[in-house]
C-alpha cells in the first residue's frame, strides 16, 4: 500500500524558477524549488534533470532529482537526499537517508526502490545513519521504522 495503481505515463507537468533546455542532449534541467506533478504524485527537489525522447511529442522517460527530494502521494510522504524516477520501468529509487511515512507507518533506511507496477518496495540500509525508533537504537547501515498493526477484532 506504499504507492499503488499509479499510472506512470500520465502527463507530467513541471514548475521551477529556472528551466534550461538542452535540446541537443534531449534533456531539460530545472533548478530552484522544482515541483513535478503527475496524476496526484508530486515530486519536489532543489533541481531535477529530466531526460526525454522526442518522437513527435515529448515523452519523459527518466528524472534525476537532487537535494531535498520529497515525494508526496495521498497520505504517503517520502524524503531523501536524491531520487531517480524511471518512468519507463515504473521504478522510483530514493537514495541517502531515506524516510518514508504513510499514515502510522514510518520507514527509514539508506535506499528504497519502489516498483510502481508490482507494488513492491525494497528498502536497504546503505550507509546512512538511520534515526532511532522506539525500542530499537539507531545504527548506521540499517533499515528502521515502525509499521502500523492493522486493527483486528481478535486483538485482545
Amino acid at each position: 500500500q506504499i504507492i499503488q495503481n499509479h499510472n506512470s505515463n500520465a502527463p507530467v507537468n513541471f514548475s521551477a524558477e529556472r528551466i534550461e533546455l538542452q535540446d541537443r542532449s534531449d534533456r531539460v534541467v530545472l533548478s530552484g524549488g522544482v515541483t513535478v506533478t503527475q496524476a496526484g504524485l508530486t515530486l519536489r527537489a532543489n533541481n531535477i534533470t529530466a531526460a526525454y525522447s522526442n518522437s513527435g511529442n515529448i515523452d519523459v522517460n527518466r528524472m534525476d532529482a537532487l537535494g531535498g527530494v520529497t515525494i508526496v502521494k495521498d497520505d504517503l510522504r517520502a524524503s531523501s537526499n536524491s531520487a531517480i524516477y524511471d518512468l519507463d520501468s515504473d521504478l522510483i529509487t530514493l537514495i541517502g537517508n531515506v524516510s518514508l511515512t504513510q499514515g502510522a507507518n514510518k520507514l527509514n533506511g539508506g535506499r528504497i526502490v519502489i516498483d510502481l507496477k508490482a507494488g513492491r518496495s525494497t528498502i536497504s540500509g546503505g550507509n546512512s545513519q538511520s534515526p532511532s525508533v522506539p525500542g530499537i537504537q539507531s545504527q548506521s547501515g540499517r533499515v528502521t521504522g515502525t509499521f502500523n498493526v492493522p486493527q483486528r477484532d481478535d486483538k485482545k
Binding site: Q1, I2, Q4, A104, L107, G109, A118, G119, R120, S121, T122, I123, S124, G125, S130, V133, P134, G135, I136, Q139, G141, R142, V143, T144, G145, T146, F147, N148, V149, Q151
Partner: peptide
C-alpha cells in the same frame, strides 16, 4: 497509543504491498 505499532530494524526490508 504506541502499542499499536511494531518498530523494527534490519539490514534490509522488502515490502510486498500487493
Amino acid at each position: 497509543d504506541k502499542e499499536d505499532q511494531i518498530s523494527f530494524s534490519a539490514d534490509n526490508l522488502d515490502y510486498d504491498s500487493e
